[in-house]
Computed example of a mutant assay.
Amino acid sequence: MKQLSQEAFKRARNWVMMNGRPLEQALFAHEFENGPADDVLNALHAYQNVDGGFGNGLEPDIQLPDSSPIATSVALQHLVRFAEEPKADTMIREAIRYLEYSFLEERQGWLAVPEKSNDFPHAFWWTVHENGMSWIDANWGNPSAELIGYLYLFEEYVTALHIPKLIDQAIQHFLSLESFDSEHEVYCYLRLFAMVPSQRTEKVERQLTKAVQSLVKLDRENWENYVPFPLKFIPSPGSPDFGIPSFKVEDNLDFFVEKIEENGKLTPTWEWNDYPESWEKAYQHWSGILTEGTLSALSRFERLSK
């Protein structure tokens, strides 16, 4: 079991603080240096639009300034951690307003990004095609399943949508899947079931295990690429293991310790095909996100040297 040295931790910390976005800097400071929650919320608020949704490159592969359901899902992943803060409560209320406004009745959910995102730099997988959908939208649960979870969690702010019906539809969709083409759809379902634990029936657990087993890449030679590695499904000690051997989780942690020891940060394992100047900026932003997030994971698993 490898531990990240104090020296490597400081190198990674300094990289985030010098090169990361204000959001990742505030998240790091909050987790490791007793930084105020207000700094995180102020940084996150810079990405929120007047309609309550989030955009402005919060998801760095989408540089659309306007709101999108996918960027709003990213924001809510942060906001749920600070839901007791008055400022977060206001931001959540406005985000729920946006989700109700952007809900598509015929889809019983959301499309990840609006067509207007084509007018701004973006990764090719976010391009909206003539049918009004990006490749991401082939898998309904990303982000609709996750967004339904936020509606449930903050139901006091929902005025127009019938949450029990939406939850039931989301679960029936998941249980009907015979193959799993998108790890991101499964991540969204894992977040949904974390928010609505009463729905984690034995049938759901069997389907989740089947999904994870079909997607997870267990061998470290794969981890240099953009793949669903063990920590994507087991984000903290005590999480369900879905049949992933514990020694593979430990090896995955060792892998990231080695990467940070070697490079002082983590960098994206993917790239855009177009917009090279914008990708250079997004690459830096992603490096901050990945580095801060991995340091947080290593902390949860007690992999930081004292």
Rank of each mutant, 00 (worst) to 15 (best):
K232G: 14
S214H: 15
A160M: 07
L58Y: 09
G243F: 02
F120A: 10
G52T: 05
R13P: 05
A170L: 12
F247R: 06
S68D: 03
G55P: 02
W126Y: 10
R300S: 04
Y101G: 06
E130D: 15
Y187K: 08
S296H: 13
R81S: 09
F233S: 15
F28R: 02
S246K: 15
G141F: 05
I70L: 13
E156G: 10
R107W: 12
P268K: 04
R93F: 02
M133P: 01
P268N: 10
R81Y: 14
F255N: 01
P268E: 05
R303V: 04
N56A: 14
W135K: 07
K306H: 11
D274R: 10
E183Q: 12
V186E: 02
P121D: 09
P240M: 04
E130C: 06
S73L: 00
N225Y: 15
M17T: 05
P164N: 06
I171R: 06
E292D: 09
N222V: 00
L231D: 06
T294L: 11
F256L: 11
G57A: 13
K2N: 14
R97E: 06
V216H: 09
P36W: 04
L218Y: 02
H184Q: 12
F9N: 00
K116Y: 01
V227I: 09
Y189K: 03
S67M: 01
E85G: 06
T201Y: 13
K281P: 12
L298C: 12
G288R: 15
E205M: 13
N142V: 01
Y283A: 14
K248G: 06
E85D: 11
A83E: 14
G55F: 00
S68L: 04
L58C: 08
S144G: 11
S68V: 03
F255H: 01
L58M: 12
H162I: 03
K232A: 13
E261G: 05
W126Q: 15
Q213C: 10
N14R: 14
N222L: 01
L104D: 04
Y47E: 00
G57L: 15
W125P: 10
W223D: 03
H122Y: 07
S68C: 08
F32Y: 09
S68Q: 07
E155N: 12
H162G: 03
K116A: 02
D168N: 11
D251Y: 04
E258V: 12
A138W: 13
S305P: 12
M91C: 08
S5K: 08
T209N: 09
Y152Q: 05
F193G: 00
E277Q: 11
F242N: 03
L266V: 08
V80D: 06
G293E: 11
A211Q: 08
G57M: 10
W270Q: 08
P86M: 06
C188M: 08
H162C: 04
E302L: 10
F82I: 07
K87I: 11
G35C: 09
H129R: 10
I260Q: 01
P245Y: 07
H184C: 08
Y226G: 06
K203V: 12
N19W: 05
H30L: 07
P164F: 03
N14I: 12
K87V: 14
F154Y: 00
P22V: 14
Q63A: 07
H184A: 10
P228F: 15
P197I: 04
I163F: 00
N139E: 14
G243H: 04
Q213T: 14
W126G: 15
Y101R: 08
S287W: 10
G293L: 10
V204Y: 03
